[in-house]
Amino acid sequence: MEQLKVIQVRKRKQTKEPVRQPDTYDKVVEKAFWFVVGFSIALMLCCLTFGQTLYI
């Protein structure tokens, strides 16, 4: 029977890298993004609704 080799696994040392906090620019970009997404969806729904009423 063959013997199995034992491999030692060392734990990585924890790096004390600070987690980057979102700054005000990131928050403004996120708000603008969601505004554009919401506005696009609302515009599409309005176009569908009013387009249907014009062709009835």
Rank of each mutant, 00 (worst) to 15 (best):
R20H: 07
K5L: 14
G51P: 00
P18C: 03
I7N: 10
P18W: 00
V9D: 03
I7E: 15
D26V: 02
K31D: 15
L45K: 02
V28W: 08
F39H: 01
M44I: 04
P18M: 10
E2M: 02
Q52G: 02
A42L: 12
K27F: 06
K27N: 11
V6L: 10
A42Y: 11
Y25A: 10
K16P: 00
K27Q: 15
W34F: 15
R12V: 10
Q3K: 08
Q3M: 03
G38M: 06
Q52K: 05
G51F: 05
E17D: 09
R12W: 05
F39R: 01
K31R: 13
P18A: 13
K11E: 15
F39E: 01
G38N: 12
A42F: 13
D26N: 03
M1N: 08
W34T: 05
I7R: 04
S40G: 12
K5W: 02
K31A: 14
T24S: 08
V29R: 08
D26K: 03
D26E: 13
V37A: 11
V9S: 07
L54I: 09
L48R: 01
L4E: 12
R10G: 09
D26G: 02
F35H: 03
I7Q: 15
L43Q: 11
F35D: 06
V36F: 09
A42I: 09
M44E: 01
K5D: 15
Y55N: 04
A32F: 14
F35N: 11
K5C: 10
F50I: 14
V6H: 02
F50S: 04
F33C: 06
Q8S: 09
F35P: 00
L45G: 07
K11H: 09
K13W: 01
F39S: 08
M44R: 02
T49P: 00
K16G: 02
I56P: 01
V29W: 01
D23V: 06
I56Q: 13
F39V: 06
C46Q: 09
L4V: 13
L54Q: 13
I56V: 12
G51V: 06
P22N: 04
A32P: 00
E30W: 06
A42P: 00
M44W: 06
E2V: 04
E17G: 03
P18R: 06
G51N: 12
V6R: 08
Q8I: 08
M44D: 01
V19T: 08
A32Q: 03
K27Y: 01
Q14K: 07
D23I: 06
Y25P: 00
E2P: 04
E2F: 03
R12F: 07
T15N: 06
